[in-house]
């Protein structure tokens, strides 16, 4: 809950900033790192710990302990759904292309974890097939409605919900940003939609190589 409040306040702060314009608030240490390294992600006021949840690995059917499986990796965590018409496929396609252009060390140092939040349609088979369009190394996770809600709350993202229904389907409103966890198992950054492939490649290469600077 605390994490949700932090993220919520971040959104409010961001809105306030855009309105004020006249005074410039001093950069937080996180923002200073982002500015110094030229990262494309947005900084959190303070780091958040990696969310502790266990879902099912869509490819193997085995339980996937997020903290355990991704420990020591630069990890991208994204909550989306496989019927998403725009943001999800574009995000994942751009990350896949960026990794494709990156060095072997970078590719080996990054884990991309996609959580399918649309439980009725995001079956393990569907998630695995869909992720295969982008990169077969991407990890797809599925779970029950309750497990998915718990995972989203743990990660401090707004819980996804059915947004609008139309004949033959529906759309799901879900968090549009991707959390990036560095090797210290904390998130310092999140990435909204609209991050270019070149920016992903730059940030991932740098963070795998250097890690998040310790204060």
């Amino acid at each position: 809950m605390f994490a949700v409040l932090v993220v919520g306040s971040l959104v409010l702060v961001a809105c306030g900033d855009s309105d004020s314009g006249s005074t410039e608030a001093p950069l937080t240490p996180q923002e200073q790192v982002v500015a110094d390294l030229g990262l494309a992600g947005s900084a959190f006021p303070g780091p958040l710990a990696k969310p502790d949840f266990v879902l099912d690995d869509a490819a193997t059917g085995e339980p996937y302990d997020f903290v355990e499986e991704t420990a020591g990796f630069v990890t991208l965590l994204y909550f989306g759904y496989t019927n998403c018409p725009d943001i999800c496929p574009v995000h994942l396609a751009n990350i896949a292309s960026a990794l494709d252009q990156s060095s072997g060390d970078t590719r080996r140092g990054v884990k991309v974890v996609f959580v399918g939040v649309d439980a009725p349609r995001d079956t393990p088979e569907r998630v695995t097939e869909w992720l295969g369009f982008f990169d077969t190394d991407f990890v797809g996770l599925t779970g029950t409605e309750e497990q998915l809600i718990a995972a989203q709350e743990a990660a401090a993202v707004p819980v996804a919900f059915v947004d609008s229904e139309f004949e033959g389907g529906y759309t799901v409103a879900h968090a549009g940003w991707i959390f990036l966890y560095t090797q210290d198992d904390q998130t310092h950054l999140r990435y909204p939609s609209g991050i270019r492939q070149s920016a992903w490649a730059h940030d991932l290469e740098l963070l795998v190589r250097e890690g998040w600077p310790s204060s």
Partner: peptide
Amino acid sequence: FPLYTTFEFAT
């Protein structure tokens, strides 16, 4: 990398 954002962010 892609040169045009129009095509980079297109579904």
